[in-house]
């Protein structure tokens, strides 16, 4: 996985992420949009076969887009942790 920055201002970030697909981008987008400090969040895969996803985040200014992304990842890790615990419990019975 490699991240290339395409555009960066105080409250905007546009990155190209090599080696990922809808799997990661879609859950990130959802979690970013749930964050009230985030103004716009989205991703696009310009060509389904030949390109990497481009993630765009714009915040309302009180946090940086990087912070918003990290917060989203943290929340997702929490959800996954919770899910794997529930899964293991359910599989045992």
């Amino acid at each position: 996985m490699k991240v290339n920055v395409l555009k960066r201002t105080k409250n905007e970030l546009k990155i190209e992420v090599e080696g990922v697909g809808h799997t990661l981008c879609n859950i990130l987008q959802r979690k970013l949009l749930e964050d009230e400090n985030v103004d716009v969040a989205g991703y696009d895969i310009p060509h389904p076969l030949a390109s990497n996803p481009v993630i765009y985040v714009r915040t309302k200014g009180n946090i940086t887009p990087e912070e918003a992304l990290l917060k989203a990842v943290d929340k997702l890790l929490e959800v996954s942790e919770e899910f794997s615990k529930a899964l293991e419990k359910a599989l045992k019975t």
Binding site: M1, K2, V3, V17, V20, L24, L70, V73, L77
Partner: peptide, 10 residues
Amino acid sequence: QLKEFASQIE
């Protein structure tokens, strides 16, 4: 995948 992405953002 999430952890790797976070470290890249860092």
